[in-house]
């Protein structure tokens, strides 16, 4: 049977099969996130292919990637690990550990953005600036900058989760929001690895 629901107060759930069990379909919000990830990938694919096209043209100047980006890479990898641990703790209902781990992810995320900022400053002070001729530096600011904006979006979401974890008196232990957060976080991590490899080898 399908559920009978009061108009205007319905719970917006996917349909349910005859025996009352949920069909083995992916949760709509998770699916939405995957499509959104596809969309973000297209954006960075556009930018990095613009980089490749431009790098083959006259007047291109390569730049060395700031050393500090290695530290930020380590930070974001670690934060992904902690996020995964937070997800496991949440599923095992170990809420104290969960709070600690989500706070850890949050702090590591903030550290990552700060490190990126320091890297940009290093590069800027070494003479790679916006004005003037084109080159890898200008692309690096835009591409890594947009990536940092996406991380920052995740950091804000983490902050909201953190506040909820400490203040919330919710008795609903749905793990979907935490899973969504983890998926997105791993994605921005992988995206950074891709960009790092891209900047190193292309």
């Amino acid at each position: 049977m399908l559920s009978r629901i009061k108009l205007g107060e319905f719970k917006n759930t996917p349909p349910i099969d005859g025996d009352g069990s949920q069909r083995q379909r992916i949760h709509p919000h998770k699916f939405t996130l995957w499509v959104a990830i596809g969309s973000i990938i297209m954006m960075f694919a556009g930018l990095t292919s613009a980089y490749i096209v431009k790098s083959n043209q006259a007047g291109w100047q390569n730049v060395a990637m700031p050393k500090i980006f290695w530290y930020s890479t380590g930070t974001i990898l670690l934060s992904s690990l902690v996020m995964q641990m937070a997800l496991r703790s949440f599923k095992q209902r170990e809420m104290n550990q969960y709070r600690l781990q989500i706070a850890g992810t949050f702090l590591l995320g903030v550290t990552f953005v700060v490190l990126q900022w320091l890297g940009f400053q290093q590069l800027w002070n070494s003479g790679v600036q916006f004005k003037g001729s084109s080159g890898g530096g200008q692309f690096l600011y835009v591409i890594a900058g947009l990536h940092a904006v996406h991380v920052l979006g995740g950091v804000i979401a983490l902050m909201v989760m953190l506040i909820k974890a400490f203040l919330g008196r919710t008795k609903l232990y749905s793990s979907v929001p935490v899973e969504l957060m983890a998926t997105y976080w791993h994605f921005v991590d992988l995206l950074w690895i891709y960009l790092l490899v891209f900047f190193l080898w292309i």
Partner: peptide, 13 residues
Amino acid sequence: LNYISTILNMRTK
């Protein structure tokens, strides 16, 4: 995002 996810996930029985 919403259109795709609704069409793929929210169809009735």
